[in-house]
Computed example of a mutant assay.
Amino acid sequence: MNDSSTSGELADSLRALLARLSPGDRLPSSRELTKEYRVGPATVARAIAALAAEGAVVTRPGSGTYVARRTRLDDGAGTADTSWQTVALTDRAVDTHLIADPLGPPPAGTITMDSGYVHRSLQPTRALSAAMARAARRPDAWDRAPAGGLTALRTVFARIVGGSAAPE
């Protein structure tokens, strides 16, 4: 059984669980789902991500995963709300002319702090370019990670899970 079918089966099982819960109810933690369904943390994450993309659950980092408010699919509200991306990823420039104009133009050489992005003159472009060039020259830079995951990362997850969990 491949991993994508496993996460699909888990998502199906979780859909059945969602049907028994009320909107706003908290789902078991990822750790509990991992233990109950005997799957890996990545499988749980993929299943939860699929349910979130469907709009069936709402994830709140640091708090948990909750049953989403149910909507009728025929009213167009059955899709996940991604409008937050427009706000989160938009240009951060703020029009401050109403506040700043009465004060007069800023002195020459002033770096305005009215955006969510670092001013071009403060960006460490040389250091970033050098780091990027070094990384790109690595022989394995363009290789794909093994399907079973990176050993170092699996070791960390095994330590987190504890008990008899092994990186393998």
Rank of each mutant, 00 (worst) to 15 (best):
M1G: 12
M1T: 11
N2W: 06
S5W: 05
T6F: 00
S7D: 00
L10F: 02
L10S: 00
A11H: 01
D12G: 07
D12Y: 08
R15I: 03
R15M: 00
A16R: 10
L17R: 14
R20T: 15
S22R: 13
P23S: 02
G24D: 06
G24M: 02
L27Q: 01
S29A: 07
S30G: 15
R31L: 15
E32F: 10
E32N: 08
E32S: 08
T34W: 00
T34Y: 01
E36Y: 06
R38H: 12
R38A: 15
V39G: 03
V39Y: 05
V39N: 01
G40K: 04
A47V: 04
A47C: 03
A49W: 02
A49G: 09
A50W: 02
A52S: 06
A53R: 08
A53I: 07
E54G: 14
V58F: 03
R60C: 06
G62V: 03
S63N: 09
S63L: 12
G64W: 05
G64H: 02
G64E: 02
G64T: 03
T65R: 03
Y66T: 05
Y66L: 06
A68C: 08
R69E: 05
T71W: 10
R72F: 06
R72Q: 06
D75T: 12
G76P: 01
G76L: 03
T79C: 09
T79I: 13
A80F: 07
A80N: 02
T82Y: 14
S83D: 15
Q85V: 12
T86I: 08
L89D: 13
L89T: 13
T90F: 01
D91E: 12
D91I: 04
A93W: 13
V94Q: 01
D95F: 05
D95I: 05
T96I: 06
T96G: 07
L98K: 10
A100P: 02
D101T: 11
P102S: 06
G104T: 11
P105D: 07
P107N: 08
G109T: 01
I111D: 09
I111Q: 01
I111T: 14
T112G: 09
D114I: 01
S115C: 03
S115M: 02
V118S: 05
H119V: 09
R120H: 14
S121K: 10
S121E: 11
Q123R: 13
T125I: 04
R126D: 15
R126I: 12
L128M: 11
L128Q: 14
A130V: 08
A130G: 09
A130T: 07
A130E: 13
A131F: 11
M132G: 07
M132Y: 13
A133F: 12
R134G: 00
R134D: 08
R137D: 10
P139H: 14
P139S: 15
P139F: 13
D140K: 00
W142G: 11
D143F: 12
D143L: 13
A145V: 04
A147D: 12
G149F: 03
T151N: 14
T151Q: 13
A152E: 05
A152K: 11
A152I: 13
L153M: 10
R154K: 07
V156L: 00
V156N: 06
F157K: 05
I160S: 11
I160V: 15
V161K: 04
V161D: 11
V161Q: 06
G163R: 11
G163K: 09
S164A: 15
A165T: 07
A165M: 05
A165P: 01
A166K: 07
